[in-house]
Write a protein that binds this DNA or RNA. Structure first.
Lengths: 246, 246
DNA sequence: TGCGGGATTCTTGTATACAAGATAATTTTT
DNA sequence: AAAAATTATCTTGTATACAAGAATCCCGCA
């Protein structure tokens, strides 16, 4: 039932509180788990999430599952097809561009406007990158995917803005789904290196340079997408039938 | 029952479809109405939104109301107090800063990264500002509040990014609530003028200048807040009892 | 063998019943 | 009359029942 007690899930703060593993006591558990699984690449775009199925997994009635799905819907992570089921979103090529553009705007803007970081912040960020490297070296794909995405959330948190962190969590989750959908060729090692470069710039107080590097980084993310090969059953068929959507 | 058939609500695209006024056929009607009312200043921060009450207004059961509230909760517009009720959020001073900082990051970043506008876009934006001026001159407070907030959503839409537009709708709604809560002294006419200035810069293709003006504009919004006077009953009491929260 | 059509099963959509707690009102007690 | 305890009322929290439509399966038929 429980996907993981610690390890990968240890990043989520509430995971230390035993109560938090009970969907009755922690109303956000279901969403948190789904977001985490998506961020870790354990839930694929287009995957069906049955209400009954989830209700059994979390030991609650469909009501609570449904409420969680409503919140995830508002966050752009799942969508519902009438009387067919809930599905993890499969952003179209256009939506994918809009999502990554939104991230560029948000993260570049963040570094330009509130990008001042003290020594403690730099230390925390370097720690995160170290964890990324470890996951890459260790071959832990889920942890790697999670940490590479979470870096951006971590950055917003470290800069002291939970509102931005929350927005970025949703956008990075969508980005991970997009990368899975369009078979991203992006190299984890390279991504991790770019994270380090951004921190370097931040450390010297050069927010403009940090912003530029972030812009480049996110452009790389988009460049690495292959808009021709869509790895989902449905979308694959759609693309095959209606010709090039590019 | 129906708050308004047209006029103020005519901005919302779905309002033209008669079906869309039926909460059964348009599952997002309840949220849309609440967002619109908040943006128009017709719903105050701290206001209680009873499930039963809303169910009667929209002619549906509590179930659908509840689902709408879940989505609004995920969007940071309402919050629930266990077995007491749903309330429109009353952001703390810190949350208010984070929200406006997030907007600065997002909107400055947006103009810097995707701020290129052609003649058609400029025309649409000028049209919007003209509507703002009309509402200001006509003394229509609700319309004025709505349009001044909606300008930023309109900007994102015009620049062609619905993802950003969606994020901005939620952030501007929160900003309107914040302005109401902290009795903003911001002058509508000045705000409208600043919108025009941003469009001017955009028209000349100077995205850097447009971004700078947006930064200034949003700093004005924050500067106009009075963090000492909180216009909500509860927060007022809280502030009075626990001393300066600033 | 290939194809239509109808029953069946499965899934969400919506309402409702009842539980549990919070608030308000009332009564009792001092 | 003031304070405390009790009851009543009101609100959300959760589960469940049933409706409605989608997808599938299976059987009859050409």
């Amino acid at each position: 039932m429980v996907i993981a007690e610690r390890g990968a899930l240890a990043h989520i703060p509430c995971m230390r509180d035993p109560d938090a593993n009970d969907a009755h006591k922690n109303p956000h558990l279901i969403e948190d788990r789904i977001i985490h699984a998506a961020l870790s690449g354990r839930i694929a775009p287009g995957e069906r999430l049955g209400e009954k199925e989830l209700a059994e997994i979390f030991g609650v009635s469909r009501t609570l599952v449904r409420e969680a799905m409503m919140r995830l819907q508002a966050r752009g992570i799942v969508e519902v097809s009438a009387r067919r089921g809930w599905f993890v979103v499969e952003p179209s090529v256009e939506e994918a561009r809009h999502t990554i553009d939104a991230r560029r705007a948000l993260e570049v803007g963040m570094l330009v406007t509130i990008g001042r970081a003290d020594a403690g912040m730099i230390r925390a960020l370097r720690e995160h990158v170290r964890a990324e490297q470890k996951a890459i070296a260790g071959g832990d794909r889920a942890e790697r995917s999670y940490l590479l995405g979470h870096f951006h959330v971590c950055l917003a948190e470290t800069l002291g803005n939970p509102v931005l962190a929350s927005l970025l969590q949703d956008l990075t989750t969508r980005t991970v789904l997009i990368a899975a959908l369009y078979q991203s060729s992006h190299d984890a090692h390279e991504s991790c290196g770019e994270h380090g470069g951004i921190i370097d710039a931040l450390e010297t107080g050069d927010t403009t340079e940090a912003a530029r590097l972030m812009d480049v980084h996110l452009r790389h993310v988009e460049k690495a997408l292959n808009y021709r090969s869509v790895s989902s059953r449905l979308n694959h068929l759609k693309a095959a039938l209606q010709g090039s959507a590019d």
